[in-house]
Design a protein around this nucleic acid. Structure first.
Lengths: 335, 335
DNA sequence: TTGTAGGCGTTATCAG
DNA sequence: CTGATAACGCCTACAA
């Protein structure tokens, strides 16, 4: 006597689509998963029914059945350097294209507890794969300790050659540019000693100097910030170096400002090369000669490795991404 | 004859915990959800069983039942400005603390299709709430069109007063600093006209000038990049302005470099104030006077609004976050 | 090529 | 305060 058949407006599901299309739920499922064995005509009917009903798949249900969430977890550093930020966006883009979701957690890469907590968080989320920004030795340690059993790829680290920019080569490029300009006393404004990329760059500095038979060595450690570069200026000045290879662009900026404040001109008195090629570097004063890294490419590879897991790993072991020297005005010949 | 009773090692679930603790699955579920009506002693037994078995909750199953994913979607801009980057990390931190996950999607905020795709992506993910970076008028349009039915809060936008830094006030602060130093011809290096924050800052510029009875107006639009600031230098010079309020720190950097290249000194000839207070601004040459925004606070509020949904909204309507002027060396009195 | 039956791990509902 | 039972929406068998 009443139309109470429509008790409560449940969300539309495969069952509804199936009913409307006059097929079984299973067939709808097949269409959903692009299974080959579905008659084109049947598929069309199903598809039509789907968008007539405004059907949207329920991921929770799918995940429950397949035990796969199609989600990639990203453990990022809360330091928010330029490079990593780029990488995250690139990861998301690649992942989305591959039909994956991205769940992020930020941690202080130097703090083991913070890293542990973030990874546990991601793990609880049941991500299918993990991209870990492991710029810090400690981050890798935690990763090994935890042994998540989840496919993982480390980024911005020194361990995994296929997914990193060749830091040593980059550093050598920078030092070579300085040496080629005629400098013989080249200092290194390094990143924190326990950062893997800092270490790699430092060894590149050492290697290039050694290869050229240059005996002068002078290293001062900063913490990646412009402030630390600024504070390093005094030491650099006292060392008598005529050129500095800075571990990143921001420290180079601080260094240049610090030098200038004490009457030392760049590049007239001291030449400087940075690392990263942030968008701002071109507009520093003077425009900064630096080493560019292709973060986007890095991210693409990381996601491909995770998503492709098991297919076409046969492809040749990929070489590290090659860095490129960007020549601008912060390098000149010594007086 | 064989111990094949242990057929396949299925993941431990509530059922296993329940068995070990000698209770029903439902009771385990209650413990999991911190339901009040559980005898302390029973709870202890369950908890003990849980970590004896190394139990981990399955979110997919929970989501299937509750129809809530405990995930917050973040639609971010792929422009990767300093502020938004900070905000994302802060959002993640707040969300995690509240027991939520964060799923991100990046889009080109100026491109409606890109934004639409990103939002659809997040929506398919069935996020419980949405934080949208809507610095662009078009982003808001898409948002309104789509009408997702998901609780949403917009950030870095001009619409929603409670979740934004007061851009007009910030701009007035900047212009006032210049005017107080004695400048009467103050130009504005603005962001793109269709960016809401750019518009708000421009109107703050106008308002402060009007309030002081200053007649000079000169606005040139950039695109937030240092490059565009650099390119604007010629126009600024030609205008005869003795001071410039730049829409962000990066444009200020480019502007200063451009000015200097053509023999105009900052601040001796032209004073400059920026906006954002990026970490580098203090080490520009000269150190940049700028307006600081508290992005962390912004993010916290956004998450609180989403998570708190329905509880304690009674609290007084929160005021916009107040920006602060950071005084450094890029401002001087006109000759 | 398509349909049927059962289960994935948790929460909701209603009894006790 | 605790337990039984039935969803939740999809997928993996296997059968037709």
């Amino acid at each position: 006597m009443s139309e109470n058949a429509e008790a409560r407006p449940r969300a539309v599901g495969v069952r509804d689509v199936a009913a409307l299309a006059g097929v079984s739920r299973q067939t709808v499922s097949r269409v959903l998963n692009e299974h080959p064995d579905v008659a084109p005509e049947t598929r069309d009917r199903v598809v039509a029914a789907m968008d007539e009903l405004g059907y949207r798949m329920n991921n929770a249900a799918r995940a429950l059945g397949t035990r796969r969430t199609r989600t990639i977890g990203v453990l990022a550093s809360d330091a928010l350097q330029y490079g990593p930020s780029r990488s995250i966006a690139a990861i998301e883009a690649s992942a989305r294209e591959a039909g994956y979701w991205v769940s992020t957690a930020y941690a202080d890469s130097g703090d083991a507890d913070s890293v542990r907590a973030a990874i546990e968080h991601l793990r609880a989320q049941a991500v299918d794969g993990l991209v870990v920004f492991a710029p810090h030795a400690r981050t890798l340690d935690v990763l090994k300790d935890l042994d998540t059993g989840i496919p993982t790829v480390a980024l911005h680290t020194a361990d995994c050659s296929a997914h990193s920019v060749d830091q040593v080569a980059g550093a050598r490029l920078a030092v070579a540019a300085l040496a080629d300009a005629g400098h013989r006393r080249i200092a290194h404004l390094a990143g924190p000693a326990d950062w893997l990329e800092a270490e790699a760059r430092a060894s590149g500095y050492e290697a290039e100097l050694a290869a050229r038979g240059l005996g002068f060595r002078m290293t001062v450690c900063g913490d990646w910030t412009a402030r630390s570069g600024y504070e390093a200026a005094a030491e650099v000045r006292a060392s008598g170096a005529t050129a500095v290879f800075a571990g990143n662009d921001q420290m180079a900026l601080g260094l240049i400002t610090g030098l200038r404040e004490s009457g030392v001109d760049v590049p007239a008195d001291v030449s400087v090369v940075g690392f990263d090629d942030t968008p701002d570097a071109e507009y520093f004063w003077p425009p900064l000669t630096t080493v560019r890294q292709d973060f986007d490419e890095l991210a693409r590879r990381a996601v491909a490795a995770l998503v492709g897991e098991g297919e076409a790993i046969a492809s040749a072991p990929v070489a590290p991404v090659a860095p490129v020297l960007i020549t601008r005005a912060s390098v000149a010949s010594p007086r």
